[in-house]
Simulated scan of single mutants.
Amino acid sequence: MSIIRFVNTDGLPAFLAYLSKDARVLAPVEKPADKKSVVFEEWTQGKPFTLEKATVPAKEAVLPQCETLLTYKRDKDPEDPSRVSLKLDDTPQAVPTVVFACRPCDARGYVTLDRPYLQGPMVDPYYKARREQLTVLTLTCPRGCSTCFCHWVGGGPSSPEGSDVLMTEVEGGIVLQGLTPRGDALLEGSGLEDGAARFPDAEAARKAAWATLNKAPDLKEAPAKVAARFTDVDFWEKETDRCLSCGACTYFCPTCYCFNITDEGDGYQKPGRRLRTWDNCMSPLFTREASGHNPRTAKALRMRNRVSHKFATYPENWGAFSCNGCGRCISNCPVCLDIRAIVLDAVNAE
């Protein structure tokens, strides 16, 4: 039986203070802008936070937008300047981190990233170090929205996948349910009151959230059907005619994991460093080779690669979609390109 706790709404700041004693806590914070945005930031005592769905997922907890992989220093031998020694420091930069109040689609995003970074031919030590120190407290969604389609791809408003603690809003507060040994241990030491009596309210709230969703289409044949459209350039040109190649769909995605590597400095006068930064497969430069040749100059071919990876190639390799249906690529697209429509057109095409 998992640990169940309850916290009053007024008690959330104290709970966050408990979480931040031994870890960095990333909580959703509302930012003033013409278009309201909610981003994850490190929480400190007294800092306002929100329980609204974040505009940007908390992917940086395990895959920072820019990170130093290693630093290097070159030293010439004063007796023989032709001899150069190279010192490297590739120690992963990882600290205990708690992600507070992300959504189920975001928590499933960590599982999606785990497969290529931890279960592939090579384990990424930088990702692994952060992932092992990550605790995820997920807030279930109270209802569906027009751009969400998590239930199309195996998730849902109360999906537990990827979460250590599942939180559900009920009248007067939040019910917290431990899902993993790490989550149970966190709740046991929290000092929060027992929430078993309120758990039926949480279950009712979760059921009500599912009831707000429209019926999901059957995407069982999507991997094969999307793959079959790969060479149909006319199909992709038609589907992506409005695309601006701005890359918003990739930068707001909780499961995109392409990156670029850049070296800064030669390491002689001061240490140089090797950086890993998010890359954007919708950029015209993404596939440009050292020779100057670029196999994907057309935006239709780049979007073909992006959609095919999420709904055909990744499922072929890992048995699951690499899209979690969060809908951010739709809500943040300046021309409202809808990945759902592309996939359904591929599935229904003759």
Rank of each mutant, 00 (worst) to 15 (best):
S2D: 06
I4F: 09
V7N: 04
T9H: 10
D10T: 05
D10E: 11
Y18S: 14
R24H: 06
L26R: 05
P28E: 01
E30A: 09
E30I: 03
A33S: 15
K36H: 05
F49T: 06
E52G: 09
A54D: 01
T55N: 00
P57I: 04
A58L: 05
A61Q: 02
P64H: 09
T68N: 05
T71E: 15
K73P: 09
R74D: 00
D80E: 11
S82A: 15
S82N: 14
R83H: 08
V84C: 11
S85C: 09
D89V: 04
R103G: 01
D106Y: 00
A107F: 07
Y110E: 01
D114H: 00
P121S: 11
M122A: 10
M122T: 08
R130K: 15
L139W: 01
G144S: 14
W152D: 04
G154W: 12
S158K: 07
S158Y: 13
P160Q: 11
T168I: 08
V170A: 09
E171W: 08
I174S: 04
T180M: 06
P181Y: 05
G183H: 03
G191H: 06
E193D: 06
A211P: 06
A211F: 08
L219T: 00
V226G: 07
A227T: 01
A227W: 13
R229Y: 10
D232S: 04
D232E: 13
D232P: 07
D234N: 15
D234A: 13
L244R: 03
G247K: 13
G247T: 05
C249M: 09
Y251W: 11
P254R: 00
I261Y: 11
T262L: 09
D263C: 08
D263I: 03
Q269S: 13
G272S: 10
R274S: 12
C281D: 10
F286H: 08
S291L: 14
H293S: 13
P295A: 05
A298T: 02
A298Y: 07
A300S: 14
V307E: 01
H309P: 10
F311S: 02
Y314S: 02
Y314A: 00
P315H: 04
N317A: 15
G319N: 05
C323D: 00
N324F: 15
C326L: 02
I330R: 13
S331V: 02
V335P: 03
C336P: 01
L337F: 09
I342A: 02
I342Y: 01
L344C: 02
D345G: 08
A346Y: 03
E350Y: 15
